[in-house]
């Protein structure tokens, strides 16, 4: 396989060896981990390298931060590679630059992440909730989300602290 080739050609490895490096991660494929300040720079770089299709934005609620994962794909590459961009925002200040100006498809995905996890996207053209009503309080996909109307499925087979609460 000419995998090295793809990474060398597309990746930022050659241009910015200190900051942005695409590595291959088990289970995910090529990943690019950036600080949240660099997300826009990384996105512009990838877009210029031909990554023209953004397929999802996912947020993961970690104990003190929210991890964000973006998957971008290049239609121009013959080898057809995808890169997963990873970044993190602290829970105390969950703000990050919006990627909607770069990939229009980020629009709804970012709205969804805001709706369910409470990450604010700076520069988003339409920062409304996606699924929940406009007046909803709280972010349902956060681990500490509590709601009286929520029926929690009790499972005796739990080995994770906090699950049986």
């Amino acid at each position: 396989m000419s995998n090295e080739n793809i990474v060398g050609k597309n990746g930022q490895g050659e241009k910015d060896p200190n900051e942005l490096k695409i590595v291959e991660e088990k289970g995910l494929g090529y990943t690019l981990t950036v600080a949240r300040e660099d997300i826009l720079k990384a996105a512009v770089g990838l877009k210029e390298a031909g990554f023209d299709l953004l397929t999802f934005v996912a947020g993961v609620d970690m104990p003190d931060s929210i991890k964000l994962t973006y998957r971008v794909y290049s239609s121009k590459q013959k080898n057809q590679v995808a890169v997963i961009i990873k970044t993190e925002v602290p829970k105390s200040d969950p703000v990050i630059d919006s990627l909607t100006p770069i990939w229009s498809s980020a629009n709804w995905h970012e709205r969804e992440t805001y709706d369910l996890l409470g990450v604010e996207f700076k520069g988003h053209p339409d920062p409304r909730r996606m699924f929940m009503p406009e007046d909803w309080v709280g972010y349902p996909l956060r681990k500490d989300y509590k709601d009286d109307r929520m029926v929690v499925f009790e499972d005796y087979r739990t080995d994770r602290p906090g699950d049986s609460e």
Partner: peptide, 15 residues
């Protein structure tokens, strides 16, 4: 653990 920590579904209809 025996349960997923997070499952994200990338649905083509949504996009």
């Amino acid at each position: 653990s025996i349960k997923p920590y997070r499952v994200k579904i990338q649905g083509p209809s949504f996009a």
